[in-house]
Simulated assay, not measured.
Amino acid sequence: MMFGRISIILTAMAALLLGGCATPQPRSIWSAEQLAVLKEENFVQTGRGWEFTVDDRLLFATDESQPSAGQTEIIGRIAKRLLSVGIQHAEVEGHTDKTGTTEYNDQLSKRRADAVAALLTTNGFVAENVRATGLGERFPIETNASATGRRENRRVVILITSP
């Protein structure tokens, strides 16, 4: 009889210990609906969060800081779709090519980020939930030695890091 009780107790303890060893699956901070919208709107998951770019980037002409009419329409649509699924925070990063001085490029990249952030707020985002940063020429994604490379570096990235 005593052996039966010890066996039951040991079995119960083993079950508790093994149950505690199971690795819990990480829970996504994103709902299925949020993930669907992010993917449908061409956001790409990176190590930093979900990055949006039009044709891989929101590109700008040399010395320009205002999005084109087409970009304005796309950003407006995306803002509304994100808000419709509860995504209310965004980071906007402006970038430049290496043309011009570092100081000027920092200012230009900030103007680009501010312009895209303003479009998000015009389309429903609360201004306090949108952070705009000018990163100048510090993070090129292509070489600045060619016109094509410089064009790719004149961009703005919208980053979503939390729902």
Rank of each mutant, 00 (worst) to 15 (best):
T23F: 14
T23N: 15
P24G: 14
P24F: 15
P24Q: 15
Q25L: 09
Q25G: 04
R27F: 11
R27M: 13
R27C: 11
R27N: 12
R27Q: 15
S28D: 13
S28C: 11
I29L: 13
I29Q: 12
W30M: 07
W30K: 08
S31A: 15
S31I: 15
A32F: 14
A32S: 15
E33T: 11
E33K: 12
Q34E: 14
Q34G: 13
L38Q: 07
K39T: 12
K39Y: 01
F43A: 05
F43W: 07
V44P: 07
V44R: 09
Q45C: 00
Q45S: 06
Q45D: 03
Q45N: 09
T46P: 01
G47L: 05
G47P: 04
G49K: 00
E51H: 02
E51R: 03
F52N: 02
T53Q: 13
T53L: 12
V54Q: 08
D55E: 13
D55P: 03
D56S: 13
R57M: 04
R57V: 04
L58Y: 03
L58T: 04
L58C: 01
L59G: 06
L59C: 07
F60Q: 04
F60D: 05
A61S: 14
T62A: 11
D63Q: 14
D63C: 12
D63V: 13
D63K: 15
D63L: 15
E64C: 14
S65H: 13
Q66F: 11
Q66M: 13
Q66W: 11
P67V: 11
P67Y: 11
P67I: 11
S68W: 06
A69Y: 05
A69C: 01
A69F: 07
T72V: 08
I74L: 06
I74S: 05
I74R: 07
I75H: 03
I75A: 01
I75D: 01
I78M: 05
A79Y: 01
A79G: 05
K80E: 08
K80F: 03
R81G: 01
R81D: 00
L82Y: 05
L83R: 09
L83S: 08
S84A: 14
V85Y: 10
G86D: 11
I87T: 11
I87E: 06
I87Q: 08
